[in-house]
Every structure is written in structure tokens, then in C-alpha cells.
């Protein structure tokens, strides 16, 4: 399956999962909404150019916004993490390899600890930005901090579960292929 088709399927699954499952489940506590859809951006292949990353991020966010009736809110956060992604990968990528031996970021490609750091940083940025934008019009500072920490915790839990439940079968990229 080509990267393009794989990612289109992934995109629809993530958006539908977010809109019809995660936003629908009875809330755990006040307003902690589990969110997972941005894992799509974290899973994009290494080879996507930075410019394309930004556009894909924007489209992902705006699609979710259409369903959530908050135009621009998730789009802004997705563009932010799409912009930051290459920097963080550059810092965390294994130094000894000349290129990336795998196609996309995964625990296998980066190693568990760097991968978790990578997801944690981007999750924090994503939720921090969304809650900040909501908070500008509404709420107090404790509400803001509590919500960022709680949503980040839930999202990290979901990401780890996803990684354990659906290990992506990825071919090791060799020179011969």
C-alpha cells in the first residue's frame, strides 16, 4: 500500500474516531475530552517536506473544526505542531544512522523513550495552545493549567495504548530496495 493511500485511510479513521467516539463518550471529569486525532500528524512519514506538513496539519485541523463547530481552533494547534515536528525529530533522531532507517516515527524507529518524549512535547504544545485559545475568552488560570495537564495525561495514555494495540508493521529500509 502506498504512503498516500495509507495516510488517507488513516486520516479518515482518526477524524471519525475523534468525532464519533472520543467526543461522544460520557466525560470523565468536567471537561477532560480525550483527543487522539493529532496522532495522524505525528505519524506522517519523515519524507514529507515541511511546507506540505503545514498544509496537511491545517487541513486536518479544519476538518475536525467543521465537525466540532469551532472553525480555526484545532487548525491553529495542528499547524503549530506540524511546524514544530521537524525540529523535535532532528533533536531526538538517532545520531549514528546516516538517514532514517524507517519510514515514519514510531517506537521502533526512534526507540521508546525518544518516541514518548516526542509525543509528550507535541501533545503539550497541542493542548496548551487549544486551551490557551479557549481560555482567552473564558476561564481562570487554574482552570487553564489543570486542563492542560489533565488532557495531556489522558492523551498520552491513549497514544501509548494505541502504540501497544496497533504496532505498525514497517519494513526496514535498506539500500537494495
Amino acid at each position: 500500500m502506498s504512503d498516500l493511500i495509507r495516510n488517507i485511510i488513516r486520516f479518515s479513521i482518526f477524524i471519525l474516531l475523534q468525532v464519533y467516539v472520543l467526543n461522544k463518550i460520557p466525560h470523565l471529569h468536567k471537561f477532560i475530552v480525550p483527543s487522539l486525532y493529532y496522532l495522524f500528524i505525528l505519524w506522517l512519514p519523515f519524507s514529507v517536506p515541511r511546507m506540505a506538513l503545514l498544509v496537511i496539519g491545517f487541513l486536518t485541523g479544519i476538518t475536525l473544526d467543521v465537525f466540532m463547530m469551532t472553525p480555526g481552533l484545532h487548525a491553529a494547534a495542528c499547524v503549530l505542531i506540524a511546524y514544530l515536528r521537524p525540529f523535535i525529530i532532528n533533536v531526538l533522531a538517532p545520531k549514528d544512522a546516516s538517514g532514517f532507517s524507517y519510514r515514519e516515527p514510531s517506537p521502533k524507529a526512534l526507540g521508546w523513550t525518544p518516541y514518548l518524549v516526542y509525543t509528550l512535547i507535541l501533545t503539550l504544545f497541542h493542548h496548551g495552545y487549544i486551551v490557551l485559545l479557549e481560555w482567552l475568552s473564558f476561564g481562570s488560570i487554574w482552570h487553564f493549567l489543570g486542563k492542560v495537564i489533565a488532557t495531556t495525561g489522558i492523551s498520552m495514555l491513549l497514544i501509548i495504548t494505541t502504540e501497544l494495540l496497533f504496532p505498525r508493521r514497517m519494513k526496514f529500509r535498506t539500500n537494495t530496495a
Binding site: 498544509v55 491545517f58 487548525a75 491553529a76 499547524v79 485559545l133
Partner: peptide
Amino acid sequence: SFLLLQAASLWFL
């Protein structure tokens, strides 16, 4: 372009 897309999203919002 990052700034441009951010501005567009915030304007929508």
C-alpha cells in the same frame, strides 16, 4: 507560511 496559516486559523476562530 506557518505564520500565514496561523493567522488564517485565528481569523476564522
